[in-house]
Each structure stands twice: as structure tokens, then as C-alpha cells.
Amino acid sequence: MNKSRKTLLVVGATGSIGRHVVDGALLKGYRVRALVRHPQRAGLPEAVSMIVGDLTRPETLVNAVQGVDAIVFTHGTHGSIIQAEQVDYGGVLNILSLLPDSAVQLVLMTAIGVTDRKGAHDWKRRAERLVRATGSPYTIVRPGWFDCNKPDQRRLVFLQGDARQSGTPSDGVIARADIAHVLLSCLEYASASGKTFELVAETGARQNDLEELFCNLKADQPYSMDGVCDVANMPQSGEPLEVNIALDAFERKQVR
């Protein structure tokens, strides 16, 4: 599809990553729609269509998802388990539940170390599982520590298995602008679809063509709840009842 006719919804558009995604998407010719809570304080470019909504209130999200071709989720909370449940997971659930079919392309940003079972991360991981359960084309990106890179650390590195879990920048660093670049690239490379990976940067220049990086990734197993190389340390049988009900609902929708 011609990008000039493609409508992209950015969730978390006024955040530190979302603003980069918005700017990059406009440059690429997307028709950009931003979900915002306070439009008067958003400070987004005039070309952006702002939709007022709250991720924790699904009735406010209907207009945001109407007619979208793709969604990039850049929202996130920091540390609070309650907020992670309501926003990191609940926001994704509320958006996905409103989509009429599985034709919408999804890109979800979570975090490196998301499989470490440290409370709030479990809810980010559950959001990943929702995305996989929809049957929609998707990519899940787990960036390292934002803007902790040195100026010459711009060479993108894609990892799988979520093995770096110290909870410090030693797990990997990445510039915010480079995260946005990768999130948008996930929409444009067919080789990115159905894959989950960690994103960090090493010394060197940022690559313009990401085809090889995406092609070298393993795809998630069909109908699997987790990334292809993730450790199996969060069995679905031990999950909260409401989480399994939501997953089952998306899986049933696929069968239809």
C-alpha cells in the first residue's frame, strides 16, 4: 500500500519515543493519528490528527482505531505493578479488543529483560502475548536503555532470547531516535513480521537498510505465547484468570 494512503496510529505519541515515531512517520508519508489525553499540551505537528482518549477507558478509544492500517505502541510505565497492569497491558488489551479484524499491522515496544519475572515486567510480557494471539501481522521490539549510548554507538544489533537481565545499562543501550527508526522499519520490511527481538546499539554508524538484520531473526512459533527463544518461565496455566480469558477470546476470533 502507498504510505501516503496508510493511516498509522501512534499510541504514546507524546512520549519520548512516540514523538520520534510521529516525526519519522510524517517524513515517510504516513497519515499519522496520535492518541493523546491532553491535546492542548501535546505539542505535536499540525499534520497529525489528534484523538483524545485514555488507554484505561476503552469507550474513549473507538475513534482512535477506526480505519487504521497500522498501530505502533510506544507507551509504557516505569516500575509500578498496578500501572503496568492498567496501562502497559490494559491499554494494549483495550486497543486490540476494538479492532474489527486481524488486518491491522501491529508493532509493540516493550523492554529488554521483559522475561525476568520482576513484577511489572510480567504485564509487559502479557501485552506481548495479546499481540501474538490476535493473528495480526506483528513485530515486538524490546529496546535497551534509552539514550545511554555514547555518540558513536549507533550500529543496530538485534538479539533474541532476552538473556541480558542485569537491570542496568550493561544489558544494552540505544538512542531514542534509533528505537523509533526501527519501530517504523518494522512496518516496511516483510521480513520483520512475526518476530520478537531485543534492540541495542554498538559502536559504529546506524544502518540504513535493515533487511539483513530482520532476515537473520528467527520467527516466533505459530500459536506460541512467547518469543521464539524466550525461556519458558511463565506458564499460561499459572496466569491470572482474566488474562487467560482475554487470550482465549483473541484465539477464538482467529478461528472464526
Rank of each mutant, 00 (worst) to 15 (best):
F73G: 05
G238W: 00
N216P: 06
Y30S: 05
K6H: 13
D23N: 15
Q207I: 10
Y30I: 07
A163F: 06
V10K: 01
R5F: 08
R5V: 06
V21H: 02
V157E: 09
P235G: 12
A111M: 11
R31L: 11
A205D: 14
P151M: 03
Q221P: 00
H75S: 13
A192I: 06
S102D: 14
K195F: 10
Q160S: 10
H181P: 00
V157H: 03
E202N: 05
L55S: 10
V11I: 15
F250V: 03
V87R: 03
R31G: 05
D220M: 02
K3D: 02
A34D: 11
R126K: 12
F250E: 06
R164D: 02
G15P: 12
G194L: 04
A249R: 14
D54H: 12
R125K: 11
C229Y: 06
L183C: 10
T196W: 02
T60D: 03
K150N: 08
E211R: 11
L217M: 08
V141S: 01
T139E: 07
V48M: 07
F146R: 05
G53E: 05
G43Q: 09
K218G: 13
T60P: 02
V173Y: 01
V157M: 05
G204V: 09
T196L: 08
T134V: 09
V87P: 04
P100E: 12
G227H: 07
S224F: 05
S102H: 13
I95F: 09
E202L: 00
G67N: 05
C229V: 09
L9Q: 02
P222M: 03
G15R: 06
V21G: 03
L61I: 06
C186V: 03
G67R: 00
D230K: 05
G167P: 02
A47N: 11
I17A: 02
L98H: 10
R41K: 15
G24T: 06
A84Y: 07
L26P: 05
L93N: 10
N94M: 09
G12C: 10
V68F: 07
D178G: 12
K28R: 15
V65G: 04
A192T: 08
S193A: 14
M50K: 14
F73S: 10
L199G: 04
K118E: 05
T196A: 06
W123A: 01
Y223D: 15
L213E: 12
E202K: 07
I179D: 03
T56M: 12
C148F: 13
T168F: 00
K150A: 14
V65K: 01
P58Y: 04
P240D: 11
N63C: 09
A47R: 14
W145G: 00
G18A: 05
